[in-house]
């Protein structure tokens, strides 16, 4: 996207598109996506970085998140875009300012000014840690995930329940030591929630629910390279 220009008190600033990468951990996993946007806006305000506000009747900080994370999940590689209006500001200083005002459960990892468009996101990696996973259940899970077709019902946006095959959306998996690593399709309305995979497994194999936690560990492009 070409940089837009904005006139502020007579001076013309170039808007700078910035991408920040962060981890959302610990107590922050209980913060929903909607609450997360409000939280980010407050951190940004506190940090006093010169952020760009939208120019409508209801002006608000412009923010764009890569893949909204479900309530209860941790994210170790979360991505958010915003715009700066100060062209003399080093982005490293911007990162430091954000770090300074953040509570411990959010960790800002890096900041970039050159990055790929969000639409190039193709896959995401999740790690699911089970409270216990017996050898028998692990075997069943492994067999289940190798099936050519996994039909499960999903509630659509209008409340309609439709049947979808999620097997093609499972790129790869790995099971070891009570934990399951999944690489699933993501982005471009192709995002698969890992809980859906496990729900389908528990139902199909008639296994009682086992408690597990979910971490999204990485986001990839089509070539399975780290998305930046």
């Amino acid at each position: 996207m070409p940089d837009a220009e904005l006139a502020v008190t007579g001076r013309v600033f170039a808007l700078r598109n910035i991408r920040i990468y962060f981890a959302k951990k610990g107590r922050l996993k209980f913060v929903s996506h909607l609450d997360m946007t409000r939280f980010m806006a407050r951190i940004i305000t506190k940090s006093k970085i010169s952020i760009w506000y939208t120019e409508g009747f209801n002006q608000h900080i412009y923010m764009n998140f890569a893949l909204p994370l479900s309530l209860g999940y941790e994210g170790l590689y979360e991505i958010m875009d915003f715009r700066l209006i100060d062209d003399n500001y080093s982005i490293e200083d911007c990162l430091e300012s954000l770090k300074k005002v953040s509570p411990p459960d959010i960790e800002f990892l890096k900041i970039r000014e050159n990055f790929a468009p969000m639409k190039e996101i193709a896959f995401a990696e999740y790690i699911m840690d089970f409270e216990t996973l017996s050898d028998e259940a692990a075997l069943k899970l492994s067999e289940f995930l190798k099936r050519e077709s996994i039909i499960c019902s999903k509630k659509g946006k209008k409340g309609k329940i439709r049947e979808i095959d999620i097997a093609p959306k499972i790129k790869s998996f790995n099971i070891e030591n009570n934990s399951l690593k999944l690489i699933l399709t993501a982005g471009n309305e192709n995002t698969l929630n890992p809980s859906l995979v496990l729900d389908a497994f528990f139902e199909a194999c008639e296994i009682p629910q086992i408690f597990y936690t979910v971490k999204r560990t990485m986001v990839f492009n089509e070539k399975l390279e780290e998305f930046e």
Binding site: R27, L28, P103, F211, T213
Partner: peptide, 26 residues
């Protein structure tokens, strides 16, 4: 520990009510 608590929090409405860790909490 939060690890012990999270199992319970994930089963209730608005777990943010009980998690703590907000901005400026001491």
């Amino acid at each position: 520990e939060i690890k012990e608590l999270e199992k319970f929090l994930l089963s209730v409405q608005k777990p943010g009510r009980y998690s703590g860790g907000e901005i400026n909490s001491v």
